[in-house]
Design a protein around this nucleic acid. Structure first.
Length: 224
DNA sequence: AAGCTTAACAACCGCCAATGA
DNA sequence: CTCATTGGCGGTTGTTAAGCT
């Protein structure tokens, strides 16, 4: 007997979310909060499973999300946190208000990992890759990794050394300041609040909330 | 212009821990 | 205590746009 699925997948929509679906989910959450993800799809009129709704909200629709590219300092911080926490993306994400674990994980897998490889560093251990280890890895590694190495060989030795030094300096300098600066920093909280206000204003001008005023009367919410 | 490859990101899947009945 | 349910997490896959040949 396998594990029971999180929901009955029959008749449920999958794949990319449409704008209409996003609107339905956002409208529902703004008006009702998040009572129980399992009930959200039905109450919001969505043919998705609750888990999918939760993911969409957390990774894409949440008002406090900070969209856009990662800055250099953010990347450096991710590298440093990853060296301490490993693949605990949610923990890492908690240090970046407005960023999601999925976003950071994707960024790590598509960019930062390659960057570290170019520096001659093992993305898992954050230590320089030994020649012996390199040979061992050589036997099993995939084509894409091989391409990364080809690029690396185009960098001359001094360039690689410089990059490596910079990385070590960076990690060293940041290590001392870390651990006391957590996400409950008051200035960060204010930033988040401002961001939220802006976003709510934006959404207010976008939606016709009047259509949802009587939602409560139409749907019997069990938690009310 | 068409086809192919790659990079970036969104979404899904399966597992696990917490919680409540 | 046991079991079912739920939310959260990390790994992986799918999709698509951009770049290249």
């Amino acid at each position: 007997m396998g594990r029971k699925p999180c929901c009955d997948k029959v008749g449920l929509k999958r794949g990319p979310w449409t704008i209409e679906e996003d609107h339905k989910l956002m409208n529902f959450i703004f008006n009702n909060g998040i009572p129980c993800w399992r009930h959200v799809p039905k109450l919001a009129g969505l043919l998705r499973c609750g888990k999918s709704c939760r993911l969409r909200w957390i990774n894409y629709l949440r008002p406090d999300l900070k969209r856009g590219c990662f800055t250099e300092s953010e990347e450096d911080e991710i590298i440093r946190l990853h060296s301490q926490l490993g693949n605990r993306w949610s923990k890492i994400a908690s240090h970046f208000p407005g960023r999601t674990d999925n976003e950071i994980k994707n960024h790590w897998n598509t960019r930062i990992r390659k960057k570290l490889k170019l520096l001659g560093l093992d993305p898992v251990t954050h230590k320089p890759v030994e020649n012996g280890e390199k040979n061992k890895q050589e036997e099993t590694k995939s084509e894409d990794v091989r391409k990364d190495d080809e690029i690396q060989t185009t960098l001359d030795g001094t360039e690689t050394d410089d990059l490596l030094n910079n990385y070590e300096i960076l990690c060293g300098s940041l290590d001392s300041s870390f651990s006391k600066e957590e996400s409950n920093n008051p200035s960060m909280a204010t930033q988040e609040e401002d961001c939220l206000k802006q976003w709510v204003d934006c959404v207010d001008s976008f939606f016709s909330w009047d259509n949802f005023i009587h939602l409560e009367e139409q749907i019997p919410f069990p938690w009310l």
